[in-house]
Write a protein that binds this DNA or RNA. Structure first.
Lengths: 214, 214
DNA sequence: TGACAATATGACTACCCAGTCATATAATAT
DNA sequence: ATATTATATGACTGGGTAGTCATATTGTCA
């Protein structure tokens, strides 16, 4: 958590620091991101950064917290839709909204994607583990429910299914990030939405319960 | 390419350097791996490292080359088996042999997995791109063939299918690497082979052509 | 033995970093 | 106007890095 001093700052100054820090962490791994550079680029003395934040980890975790909150807010109407929309459509919606989020907040998406790839074990363990477990158990619950519904075959290993759903999302994000490196995306959403459908076609059949076996 | 001087070295010295360098690149990203440390730990003067290699990139690429060669050698009897074994069984064999390779050569596997996650764009682009394209077009060819065979549905997007096959392998590797961090694996292969089967169950159904549609 | 080439060496340059701290400045309260 | 507190600052510490280079050592051939 940032120190009180940071929250006492005028909003515009706070926002600048946040913005610059997001850029830095989007372009570099945690280990290689530089507080010195963030301070310089924000027009703030390096010492001040340490009046605002405990240390680099504190700053990084705060960024992740902001990202997490924003993403949860963004995805809030995707949850608890399984009963209404069915399993696959729920996932489709999650993927699509996730892509939209990444297109609208590329820095945040890039930071999140960097975290997944983070090699600095300490920090990854600390943060990712609970989240991945959360998302895994979330998807596991969805699959269990879908099994009861007959939407997913009993023979499917739930944990593996959850893992795949999780990774399919990463595939989509990677595709997005990669093409963002080369060109502005703006409203090329449609192209990526098509990708979602292609992926889901495979996922749906892959998990589906047999319909007309004798 | 290492300089001639490196190849003039007595084999044991060369092997030491290679071994230590593999360890360093297995534990650190390209950016954070340290030639200084490799030199120290190999009992070689830092300056000597630069008699052997052009620079850090040269050393890194050489490691990747060794890994690539060894892996190709390891997988050599997995190729061109599609006609004999069928599509899914070919993939199963590739996955399983890939896991075996990683269990037997954990350092190499870890370096390869780090490369995929590499953030330092320049190096990743340079090396990964052609390889990923190679593997993608390899898998694409397999899928095309399997479509003609009726093993894979025509409606599947080939490129997306290839991507999934590629990523499923990454999922397996990640699972393996993660559990290797905590415990020795040795002959717990069986557990991971089961995972392969679970994954393939989903992949097979996901890609399969409809069998008894009217 | 001497001469020449190949190799080994580590101090050195020029850079980067996180985090600290004494001091200066600004804001607030009395 | 003074005293007290909150904030801003950048030089500094101690650490790390890649890559260079003049010099020393070793090996080889005559």
């Amino acid at each position: 958590m940032p120190k009180q001093t940071f929250f006492n700052l005028p909003e515009s100054k706070r926002d600048t620091i946040i913005q610059i820090a997001m850029e830095e962490f989007a372009q570099n791994s945690y280990l290689n991101a530089s507080i010195t550079k963030i301070a310089e680029r924000s027009g703030v003395a390096k010492g001040s950064m340490y009046q605002y934040f405990q240390d680099k980890k504190d700053l990084y975790k705060y960024m992740l917290e902001l990202i997490g909150k924003k993403k949860i807010e963004y995805l809030k109407d995707c949850w608890g839709q399984q009963d209404k929309m069915g399993f696959i459509e729920s996932i489709r919606m999650l993927y699509k909204r996730g892509l939209e989020f990444a297109i609208e907040n590329p820095l945040m998406a890039s930071i999140a994607s960097n975290l997944i790839k983070e090699q600095h074990t300490e920090i990854r363990e600390e943060i990712l583990k609970e989240n991945q477990n959360k998302s895994n158990s979330f998807f596991s619950d969805m699959i269990e429910k879908a099994k009861k519904n007959g939407e997913v075959a009993e023979e499917i290993n739930t944990e593996m299914g959850a893992r795949i759903i999780y990774h399919f999302n990463n595939i989509l994000m990677d595709m997005l990030m990669t093409s963002m490196e080369y060109e502005q995306i703006f409203s090329r959403q449609e192209e990526f939405f098509k990708r979602v459908d292609e992926l889901l076609l495979i996922l749906e059949k892959g998990l589906a319960a047999p319909k007309d076996r004798k």
